[in-house]
Nucleic acid binder design. Sequence first.
DNA 1: CGTGCATTTGATAGCTATCAAAGAAGGTGG
DNA 2: CCACCTTCTTTGATAGCTATCAAATGCACG
Lengths: 238, 238
Amino acid sequence: MSRSQSRDLPSRLSEMGEFRRATRGHEIVLDSRTDQLVFLADGATKLVVQLPDGSEQVLAFHFTGDMVHVPHRPGDRLQLVALDDCRAITFPTNAFLDAAEGEPEVLRTMLTRALLALQRSRNKAIRLGRKAAQERIADFLLAMAERIGIPDGTDIRIDLPMSRRDIGNSLGLTIETVSRQFTELRDSHMIATSGRSLVWLHDLEGLAVRAGQVAAQKVDPENCAISNKDLASPTMVG
Amino acid sequence: MSRSQSRDLPSRLSEMGEFRRATRGHEIVLDSRTDQLVFLADGATKLVVQLPDGSEQVLAFHFTGDMVHVPHRPGDRLQLVALDDCRAITFPTNAFLDAAEGEPEVLRTMLTRALLALQRSRNKAIRLGRKAAQERIADFLLAMAERIGIPDGTDIRIDLPMSRRDIGNSLGLTIETVSRQFTELRDSHMIATSGRSLVWLHDLEGLAVRAGQVAAQKVDPENCAISNKDLASPTMVG
DNA sequence: CGTGCATTTGATAGCTATCAAAGAAGGTGG
DNA sequence: CCACCTTCTTTGATAGCTATCAAATGCACG
């Protein structure tokens, strides 16, 4: 609260921040006594919670440039784990916010990022709420394409840093189901794969349909009528 | 961006904010051209997305005093619907943040709330990622108890403003499955119900076990050994 | 007191988890 | 550079859980 506000923000931040390195599969160790803000300077991570029954749930994946909020939750085993070589800087949330008190731009940027993280988490909730495994996988691939996809001719190439197990733990599926869905998408010529991590998305529209993001083609008139009725439904009136 | 910063915050806010009322089942109409911030002065709401296949996914429930961020997502039908009589004030997010530029406390409060919403959304993702219907229902009831529960002797009483269908759409379950799980919890004497909305939580610990929040009792030595091994696992070393 | 809607209960089919085993992929040491 | 070995991934068979379909019951409202 009463840190010297006289010096400039960067110097105050470098004083309270802690630099961390981690290699594939290793935890980025955080001070678990308070909420932490982590700025991922380089690499990819997963935020994972260990459930009491021994299973894991992946809450989010992060990539270079992302800000990660790791709340202090007593009783929860919450870990930030590197998916490849990572460099990060961590701050206690409260101390960081105290230091940024006089910098509205910093606070605003952080708020924007927090709202973006909220959107991504809600999207994940939508994925998980839909029961079909195929929809979850297709949606996941499209989301990854947006974040780390690289145009490759008419395809989009993705180099997935996470394992099938991580994907399963993120989508609420088993590793076997994930693998089966990949196989099915490959047989449908929507994707191609090479090795464990390389994926080419060949048919974005087809994937969007399978992800349930857009209605299937060839809508018949009856469905249109239903849509029109919905537009005038009572919930829109008041 | 260039609003007069000379007048005080409240007057500037009241100028750009819009007051809304809605009754049970009706949408709280928002300007869909930009992100909106909604402050729920009174009542309960659900944030629901209409999926292309016609199904609904409830992203979150909100109660008196909550701040809701409703992002502008082209192609998504995102609605804020009243579960009972509601009063709310809505702002375009950007304009609100511009107005709050010189008020670090306001920004900080909003950031804290956004991070809280993120935590809740992540908890929902955990619920949805676990497949068992019973765990989702038990966890949902405990979450509602924390937010709107009222002590009633040794029980906690909850007056649920949402229907079984809303609960199902929130947890990724059908209305029938929700009902069956309620029946099962009632038969196990963990809860009691009256009418459609009243629920008494009779055994918080039992519910926590069923929700998978705590390990089941009577842990045998072998499991303890496994836990100890995990504490020294390679992921903790680096 | 009746009517409409939400909820509850029942029977069955479909999907995914689980169990089991074979087949790549990538890294290591010779 | 190649053989080996560990780990991850893929494939197959079965059981269990939940969605779906169908119908009865109960609740709230006029």
